[in-house]
């Protein structure tokens, strides 16, 4: 299915968030995730179902002012 990952169209063949992150090559300990602008705590990734055209924002620590 097609989903948005950080604003870009991506094809994935999983629907579980944990599996999608693994498929995309993310290191779970380094990131946090929002789905459709809702924060998904890491503890809920295994239970989180991602649907067609859902939008994932996958963020990491960065410099800031």
């Amino acid at each position: 299915m097609r989903i948005l990952v950080n604003g870009e169209q991506v094809s994935v063949d999983k629907s579980n968030l944990s599996e999608i992150l693994d498929q995309l090559g993310y290191q779970p300990e380094d990131i946090v995730v929002a789905r459709n602008l809702e924060f998904i705590p890491r503890a809920h990734w295994d239970d989180c179902i991602v649907n067609e055209q859902d939008s994932l924002d996958i963020l990491a620590a960065m410099f800031g002012g």
Binding site: G25, V32, D57, M62
Partner: peptide, 12 residues
């Protein structure tokens, strides 16, 4: 600090 979008396997 801040948070920014992270590309896979980038290490960021």
């Amino acid at each position: 600090t801040s948070l920014r979008r992270q590309a896979p396997n980038s290490g960021g």
